[in-house]
Design a protein around this nucleic acid. Structure first.
Lengths: 227, 227
DNA sequence: AGGTGATTGAAACGCCTGTTTGAAATGCCT
DNA sequence: AGGCATTTCAAACAGGCGTTTCAATCACCT
């Protein structure tokens, strides 16, 4: 009838326009929440408001849809990583605190689509083919970035293997809050969790813990009188 | 009607006798490897060498079989935890090193059925109803044990919330090697991984890292000449 | 031995899965 | 307008899933 002129070309930045993107978005949430096996194509299409045949039309099959979903999510995550907003001359310990706070914020924060994070976590915990790209483009750069900060902090006193160990220790301290958050919630009282185990105070703690271990901050305790 | 235990239940050590135990063992491996959703009852029964109807006869349905599998695995794991083999008067730092080495050995070691570990990890990462018991009987006691060691090390200088944070940091450093082992393998060169990221040297590192942070061991680096 | 309840077995039950079909609807070009 | 490729749709496909059936078998008791 009327409305003949549907000259598209109108942006399409949103997700409610292109069916392909609607499928990707819905699939992301479903895969992230339930995992690949437990997610059904029908459920995705229902959430996306498209026909069941669409996933086959646009992506071939469920497997390729999953790969494409992971790829898109990890690229969007990479695009959100701040490149290097540190003014030259920023002390290394400030950069360490900034790095840890930044990663924690992305891991635990409530910003942006939460499912992208969760999907990446799934890949880390149980890698598929899509994991290698994720490590190469996202995780390893962060890891090396942390190592270079630590290297500067240690003034070259630590060899690469030692730096990698310390870097992994720091990552582990952040990672456990993301991967085992349910159990953390069972071990830490609720009010204490809200007060101390959130990105900002947690970043302070992990940073201080690292600096103290490196001998660059006062230890958490002062030695008892030790004659 | 009822009665699945007319005869006794002796000879429960081996796995080739009682069909019920054969099912539990096979189910444990399958569930641990593939997860609940991706595991099929038919596959379990094939591996156990029993008829498909057996799982229904002995356990009711797949869900209850899963619960029973987790329950059994976690109880066997609890039974393997050394109770308190420390002679009185053992220095707290030795107990810390012993504790960390012990947990790492159980997490990463090759002893006993590996699937029990993996199944517990699944519960930690994505808890089901069975997770509460696991935390109450297995994880929280370990956590409190670590806290009491740290409390002694700190000579009462740290409040409970601070102790919990440090304890979580230590757990995180161990946990990441178990939960994200594939990615760790991508970040650390193979030879270095075999040399430094195995239970014994790892326990040394994490212990030293903690003691240094607490001011109870020499830091990893010595401060530069700082006029 | 005969009888009784516990266990096993092969086959089938719905149901839901991923995927395919072929026709209808839509958009786009000259 | 017509013609043509792209996109949508309801319906169906074969296959696998968890679960159930019920007859056959087994173990045990008097």
């Amino acid at each position: 009838m009327s409305t003949a002129e549907a000259t598209n070309e109108a942006a399409s930045s949103s997700s409610s326009d292109d069916p392909r993107e609607r499928i990707l978005s819905a699939a992301g949430e479903e895969f992230a929440e339930r995992g690949f096996e437990a997610t059904t194509v029908r459920h995705i299409c229902l959430a996306a408001g498209v026909n069941v045949a669409s996933v086959n039309y646009y992506f071939g099959d469920k497997q390729r849809l999953y790969h494409e979903t992971v790829r898109q999510a990890h690229q969007q995550l990479v695009a959100q990583v701040p490149l290097s907003p540190w003014p030259v001359g920023t002390p290394a310990r400030d950069r360490l605190r900034g790095f840890i706070g930044n990663v924690l914020e992305r891991m635990l924060g409530f910003g942006r689509p939460r499912w992208q994070n969760r999907l990446m976590l799934r890949e880390v915990l149980q890698p598929t083919e899509a994991c290698r790209d994720l490590v190469d483009d996202y995780i390893r750069p962060q890891f090396n970035r942390l190592i270079s900060i630590l290297d500067e902090l240690a003034s070259g006193q630590l060899e690469q293997p030692q730096l990698r160990r310390v870097a992994m220790s720091i990552f582990g301290q952040m990672f456990v809050y993301r991967a085992a958050d349910d159990v953390v919630g069972m071990l830490i009282p609720a009010d204490e969790r809200d007060a101390l185990h959130t990105p900002v105070p947690l970043a302070d703690h992990i940073t201080h813990y690292a600096l103290a271990a490196l001998g660059l901050a006062i230890p958490l305790t002062t030695p008892e009188s030790r004659a």
